[in-house]
Design a protein around this nucleic acid. Sequence first.
RNA 1: UCCGCGGUAGCUCAAUGGCAGAGCACGUGACUGUUAAUCACGGGGUUGUAGGUUCGAGCCCUACCCGCGGAGCCA
Length: 432
Amino acid sequence: MATKVYIEDLSKHAGGSVTLQGWLYNLRSSGKIKFLLLRDGTGICQGVVVKSVVGDEIFNRAGEMTQESSFKMSGTIRAEQRAPGGYEMDVTNVEIISIAKEYPITPKEHGVEFLADRRHLWLRSSRQHAIMRIRHEIIRSIREFFDGRGFTLLDAPIFTPAACEGTSTLFETEYFDLGKAYLTQSGQLYGEAGAMALGKVYVFGPTFRAEKSKTRRHLTEFWMVEPEVAFNDLNDNMDLAEEFLEHIVTSVLKNRMQELNALERNVKVLEAVKRPLPRISYDQAVEILHKNGVEFEWGNDLGAPDETVISQQFDRPVMVHRYPSAIKAFYMKRDPNNDKLALAVDVLAPEGYGEIIGGSQREDDYDVLLERLKEHNLPQEAFDWYLDLRRFGSVPHSGFGMGIERTVSWICGLEHIRETIPFPRMIYRLTP
RNA sequence: UCCGCGGUAGCUCAAUGGCAGAGCACGUGACUGUUAAUCACGGGGUUGUAGGUUCGAGCCCUACCCGCGGAGCCA
């Protein structure tokens, strides 16, 4: 048996004799010559099986395989201009591992429900493969960004005793003798505790929202990365966010161009993501809406169609800051120059992908924060530990949260968020 | 929760109230350069469920089930 190699490393083995292991992506036959497309998770390579070269037994064996049968093929690697990957194999031997039953996902069109029901198989398709590789690159670059800047990863709990923004959107479960527990909808409050301990932290994990949303932008379970930095004000926070986004997009362009091409993504849009990102106030955003003929009343939150209109004015993500405090969370600090505004910032992705980042400078004054809790009718006991952060050496601090799946959706240019995560959880989907 | 669209072969979809169809997939055969290969032949159906109108319903009506998209909410 020749050396076992992966398809992504084939360029190092040109002219060499190797073995590939994988699954049959497709088979084309022309009488005395067969073309086997082997998929191994790193790429797809075509093996050319010629009857007069391998003999009847191996030739017929190759023809027995069905789509997604697992097998090994050995032979010589040759540069081939016609091959999508640049190389193909002149096969000398084929070894079947397992013949697949009739595979439901053919290289033709399928409907959404059909594919979603077979998500565990759908992941094998080249398009899903490309998305998962880009998702991984995004996550890798996120960790690289923070790890390279002195941040400490702080894992927040998933079971929480109370809501951080009200209970209506929380998944609830029984927790032994301690009553109800909720699945976290954000690790932020714990991130703030971490920032007071370690200065610069990031929380990275799954979050849960029981919103009955049924759109292409919503999951009930999604991943969020949430940096929190002591002594950062709102401007520092925006500086961090734009440097962060630039780093992620640059990394994907550098390391996953092949996958972006497989998705037919227009990379010009991504190449434009360079600092500085435009920063506009909520007031300016409202002006833009009015100029574009959108009826919008100051004080309302921006809806998805409003965000699209605003983002279409720019060629890169846009930061909208200083929203009306009435529509923002209790922990956001008010603007000292205008009590009606919160020191909040949302980053809107281009092309109508909407909000991918939401953040703020946090309220650091004990008395003000206590007042906000009361205004929002939140139970003070549940937040006593959080108030401690203001009792014992409170400092200005800021942070933001970025939704991984919306970011993947935008960078990949996808129609629907369900393709951005291996096994999506949505209001009407819990399987597979 | 509300609004809109849809459900016909394994898949994607056609079918003026009048014989249930095509492409792909699958099976058999042909083919030494195929790229979602091509060509020939073949097997494949309780038209989402229940009722109603009609000489006759995939098509019209009622209810329900399921799916998709959007709004609100949010990342």
